[in-house]
Computed example of a mutant assay.
Amino acid sequence: MKIGRIGSFTLALAIVICAVFSLRVWLIPADNKPDTTVALITKNRPNPGLMPDFSAINDVAAKKQAFFDFLRPTVRQQNAIIADERRFLESSLANLENAHPLTEAEEFRIRKIAAKYQYSSKFYDAKTLTRLLKRVDIIPEAMVLIQAANETGWGSSRFAREGLNFFGQWCFSSGCGLVPLSRNDNMNHEVKVFNTVEASVASYMRNLNSNAAYSLFRSIRADLRSQNIEPEAEQLIYGLVNYSERQEAYVDELLDMLRHNEQFLVDTHAQTPAA
């Protein structure tokens, strides 16, 4: 079929227009911006697969054992970090007491550890290192596990499930955590959200080792250390009187839980040495 000049021109123009339109569509970037509503909802929410569903375990004894077994490795990991820091400080203190000045590297690490535990000093000598050592010390495993069980209802609380918060730690900036359903209108705190179990346990330990509210806890521990007595949960729980507004009743409850759950505090996965 023949096409006249006008027809040919029209056809060519149509082809050009289609080509330009296709090129324009190809060059325009797709709108890949995330939905801000979804982003706000998912902000600071940990992966739900990080923690077992303890509420689904109907057998009470099995639930208790599972909860302790879940947290125990992280508690030991964080205590190992603190123990390493403490050994370093003790070594530095021994050097000072033997008239060996701190090296630049030693002083750098000391200042880093001091900042972690919210302790500041213009200079570090034997006296200041002794004070710092009062903060840099491990926390008995049994005490950590019992308090976590108390604060979370054996891992079934909303704050544990949605925020990996096992110790009821608060934060005070909007969006930093989960808003308690029972929060009064005149209060602005939230229950802090953690991205990992390690971060949650580390924050709790750092809180006990640095917050002024727990100076009694640290004093009891340091006093036991001075007598060459290894601090244990039953002794140090008395130092948690300011952890809850219930104070003495809270301490009594923790002590009662400690005594009634001794069998579950035993590490059932510990390997016994071969005979």
Rank of each mutant, 00 (worst) to 15 (best):
M1E: 08
K2R: 13
R5G: 11
R5Y: 13
S8C: 09
L11V: 15
I17V: 15
C18E: 02
R24E: 04
I28H: 13
N32G: 15
T36L: 11
V38S: 08
L40N: 14
L40I: 07
L40W: 10
P46S: 03
P46Q: 05
P48I: 03
G49F: 10
M51G: 04
D59W: 00
D59R: 09
V60K: 14
A61T: 10
F67N: 05
F70C: 00
L71Q: 03
R72N: 06
V75A: 13
R76G: 07
R76C: 06
A80S: 15
I81A: 13
E85Q: 15
F88K: 13
S91D: 13
P101T: 12
L102N: 01
E104T: 15
E104M: 09
K112V: 07
A114C: 01
A114R: 06
K122R: 14
F123E: 15
Y124K: 02
A126K: 11
T128N: 11
R135Y: 08
P140V: 04
L145C: 06
Q147R: 05
N150L: 02
E151P: 04
S156T: 15
F167A: 02
F167I: 02
F167Y: 10
G168S: 06
Q169Y: 04
W170Y: 10
S174F: 07
S182C: 01
H189V: 04
H189K: 07
K192T: 09
T196A: 07
V197Y: 05
S200C: 01
V201C: 08
Y204G: 04
Y204I: 05
Y204T: 02
M205S: 01
M205Y: 08
L208R: 03
A213H: 11
S215W: 05
D223L: 06
D223H: 13
I229F: 05
L236V: 12
L236M: 10
L240H: 08
D252P: 07
L255D: 04
D256C: 09
N261Q: 04
E262F: 00
Q263F: 00
L265C: 03
V266D: 06
D267K: 03
